[in-house]
């Protein structure tokens, strides 16, 4: 028991600091991905509920691709494909440029793409829960389209989309584990290194699993708080 505690403690003999730095990277990656995914997802939802068929089709192509591909494959496509494309582009200007894609950025881009495709569906179904009268009421008050969206629709939209978005956040947190495969020193990778060095794989991967569970629990509490906040105007039933 003492040995185990030493192994996961902080300091020179333990792996606590390495694992903590891995947790930090995992959380940073998830938080950095979130705004891009949300904004892209929101724009996609706007496109999908548009009256214009070409815009709807364009958004649906996007969703079909990124919901159909395994997240791991999306990550590889962005990581290696991005490298090739950027190299080609930069070769036009600097003939012997060597481009290396940062694995954090590649992970962020890939996870944002995936997150956005699911978030667009969440936003879309939330849009369906808002009646047309809300828009008409906004216009009748003389608000412009953007004002109506910002002041009338968006606050309701957040409330309606929040449960689905909360689930997506938990999925995102778990999906960050995949970036360990392209060499980012996240929680899983640090646990893997520790497991190999100390020959205690079950211990370290078990600890990693428990940390993910802890992160999920903290997130659930946060989501509940935001949910209560967004529902503060509702009549309690």
């Amino acid at each position: 028991m003492d040995e185990i505690l030493t192994l996961i403690s902080f300091g020179p003999n333990g792996w606590g600091d390495e694992i903590a730095s891995g947790i930090l990277i995992t959380i940073t990656l998830a938080i950095a991905t979130l705004p891009f995914g949300l904004i892209l997802g929101f724009l996609l939802a706007l496109a999908k509920k548009s009256d214009e068929p070409s815009l709807r089709a364009a958004a649906n192509i996007y969703t079909t691709i990124f919901r159909g591909l395994p997240e791991l494959l999306t990550l590889f496509l962005v990581y290696y494909g991005g490298q090739i494309i950027l190299q080609q582009v930069f070769r036009l200007i600097f003939p012997d440029a060597q481009i290396e894609v940062n694995s954090f950025v590649a992970g962020m881009v890939a996870l944002s793409f995936v997150f956005a495709s699911y978030a667009s569906e969440a936003f879309l179904s939330a849009f369906r829960g808002i009646s047309l009268g809300q828009y008409e009421g906004g216009y009748a008050l003389g608000l412009s389209r953007i004002q109506t969206m910002r002041l009338v629709i968006l606050p309701q939209l957040i409330r309606l989309a929040l449960p689905a978005l909360g689930n997506l956040w938990l999925i995102l947190l778990k999906d960050t584990a995949l970036v360990s495969v392209i060499g980012l020193s996240d929680l899983i990778r640090q646990a893997g290194i520790a497991a190999r060095v100390e020959k205690e794989p079950f211990l370290f991967f078990g600890v990693a699993c428990l940390i993910y569970l802890g992160l999920a629990m903290i997130s659930s509490i946060g989501i509940t708080l935001i949910d209560n906040w967004s529902n503060r105007g509702e009549v309690r039933r």
Binding site: L178, V181, I188, P201, G206, L213
Partner: peptide, 22 residues
Amino acid sequence: YFFRGTPLIAQAFLVYYGAGSF
């Protein structure tokens, strides 16, 4: 809760590499 709250990749590692501990 355990299987839905942890990444599948961590579960796979836990089984495949973790079995070595036993």
